[in-house]
Design a protein around this nucleic acid. Structure first.
Lengths: 225, 225
DNA sequence: ATCCAATATTAAGTCTGTGTTAAGTTTTTT
DNA sequence: AAAAAACTTAACACAGACTTAATATTGGAT
């Protein structure tokens, strides 16, 4: 099991590193938030141990950015000297999964890391899937299937479908879709959304009986169960 | 999000129940381990809050059996007066995902339950609904139903109805409606409002006994409970 | 009861919104 | 560097949403 330690205090970082390695974990150490973010983004860890107080980007910020900007759901154990209720609450709300105050006994850290790791192991295996009816998107493999048949989508088609499914049963306006898929935040008079909706339909709806994508005139598009 | 509380202490059980319900959770309470096991097996909860010390089957045992015998992986928050390191370690090793010592602040419990729940189910955003009598508008799905029956409205009809309901029991003049629905800020002598009010009535009032839209002669229109 | 103004209804004409295609542009692959 | 694929823009056709306008009906005052 792979663990990332992000803590600027060299002594503590080393202490955790040593203890975890003795217990059979694969450990990566880093001493600042910036590097921590980069490592967490680019490798896949099972658990991240994150110090709250660090020079530069602090732990809360690292946590928030991993969750919100990078959509990384690796379990995070927040580690810090602060452990009043407010700090704990703030940490958990920023997206941490657990919180441990310093000083701590190593046995407790170990148990908590195992608890977190156990969870990720089970959650990761049922792949990262989105579904509507008999259509499935595998977000890791980037594969879309309908009725067991694999469909070949381009990037924009894929993103558009993902957006629709993540908001299934909610009608999305062209502007919503332009923002979320194309990153265009104002009306430029383009009709790309229409065109791509057409391409998408040709692939995921045309060959099948039940149509998933619906137009709601004047409002936008939905995908429904 | 569905939460199961297993705690024999009636006061604490009730306290948690009340607090969680106020925060929009669906809560099920039970006061002994036996029943807790049965409920956890048969319904699907997003989080289980489990007291360690209980008469009959204790929390550790419940936790262990859920994990080992029943293969149930619902996140468990262990709750107890004991909070020495050893107890925490034992609890987490039995398969709990988090551990909170009594007494605790409710805000911390809430944050921890949310952190656990975030994993299993997505937080369902409460639907965006407007209601008058037996008529419901779902602003996300853009669906209008009356007496359980789905009604098909066009854009202008939908906006007009939305405007009426948002101002229910308040009489809106034609000019008010022209401004809010059509964006026309001066009198152009048009009678669109009348015409659309007619279309709307044909769909939402004509087929039903109780009429929701009322004309106030010389003043405008209202929708009332 | 009668008249006038306000409101309801209907029907026809206009025009916007949408689907579709094709051609032009950029990016990626070979 | 050429070819293919992906993406964007633009133009056109058509259905149905919307608007206008004319006529019918209702409500309230005299």
């Amino acid at each position: 099991m792979k663990v990332l330690i992000i803590d600027d205090e060299v002594a503590i970082n080393g202490f955790i590193n040593k203890g975890l390695e003795e217990n059979g974990f694969e450990v990566t150490q880093t001493f600042d938030g910036e590097m921590g973010l980069r490592l967490a983004r680019n490798s896949s860890f099972d658990v991240i141990i994150l110090d709250l107080i660090m020079p530069g980007i602090n732990g809360l910020e690292v946590c928030r950015r991993l969750r919100e900007e990078h959509q990384i759901q690796t379990p995070i154990l927040m580690l810090t000297a602060l452990n009043t209720t407010d700090d704990v609450v703030e940490g958990l709300n920023a997206g941490a999964d657990d919180y441990l105050g310093k000083p701590f006994k190593f046995q407790e850290l170990l148990a908590r890391v195992r608890a977190l790791g156990r969870r990720s192991g089970q959650i990761e295996s049922p792949a990262n899937l989105l579904q509507v009816g008999d259509l499935t998107m595998d977000l890791d493999q980037k594969i879309v299937t309908r009725a067991g048949q694999e469909l070949q989508l381009t990037l924009k088609e894929f993103l558009l479908l993902e957006c629709l499914i993540r908001n299934k049963n909610r009608v999305l306006s062209r502007l919503d879709l332009l923002e979320k898929v194309w990153g265009i935040h104002f009306d430029t008079g383009t009709n790309v959304v229409d065109v791509y909706m057409n391409y998408l339909r040709n692939k995921i709806d045309k060959p099948f009986d039940q149509k998933l994508i619906q137009t709601v005139v004047g409002m936008g598009y939905v995908i429904r169960d």
